[in-house]
Amino acid sequence: MKTKKILQGKIISNKKIAPDHFKMAIQNEWLALKARPGQFVMIKVQEKNNDPLLRIPLGVHFTEEDRTYLLYKVVGPGTATLSQRQKGEIVSILGPLGNGFDLSKNSPDKEALIVAGGHGIVPLYMLIKELRKKGIKVAVFEGACSKEHILCENRLKQTGSKVFIATENGTQGKKGRVTDVLVEYLKKYEKNGKRKNIGEKYIMFVCGPKPMIKSVNKIAEKFKINTQISFAEYMACGIGACLGCAIMTVDGYKMTCKDGPVFDSKEIKWDAQ
């Protein structure tokens, strides 16, 4: 039985917001209604010919009324083509796809630590909004190479979250890695002699480049913090058919599109990453 349709969305805006970064608003009521934090869409960047060929996976940034916002970095021909699409044009969308972040296990008195590297903030922003709506305290750790690449800082602050910035060249926030700032934050707490139950105080949500994810996982292990990570792997279909987006877990390969893109850090086989 046909139950899912490929959606048509109207581009409301598609603007450059930082070097190589674009924010796109798409109008489609069903998508905006259904998309949960951490889910993604497979979007067709053009219809004219066969190159670029595949849909590209993009994390849902947030939704508002009948609009779904996508924030993407131009990294190849697919995203470059998408960045050229104009307001008023129609795009074909498959989604929302994937599992999204799991908030069911979270007790409301835990503070949520959000760790984002580069455009890793994309799926986390919607989560932050949801956490804040539930009255959960949020501390955001955002890292990028330089000041211009720090995304959505003001919007993050408007959610009432604490925001900590790190840039590799030191043009904003602390000079260095976002994980340095995160460790500093956790150690402050540790100083009060409460290291033992630090894991009971926090829950962590992560998205960013692989090296960052790996070091965040080490921190999660050290401080015993329950951590959920959104992974970005190469994908062809987005619906579990091509088996292209495999990720090694403790139970063998799983598919990022169907079993993820969000995984509990304990599910991942880290020495295979």
Partner: peptide
């Protein structure tokens, strides 16, 4: 069969290159 080590898939001009490995 477990399949091959990722990345298993990448887009090339008008094409798709895969090494799923018969998972």
């Amino acid at each position: 069969r477990e399949g091959n080590k990722p990345p298993r898939i990448v887009e090339t001009p008008a094409g798709l290159l895969n090494s799923i490995g018969l998972e």
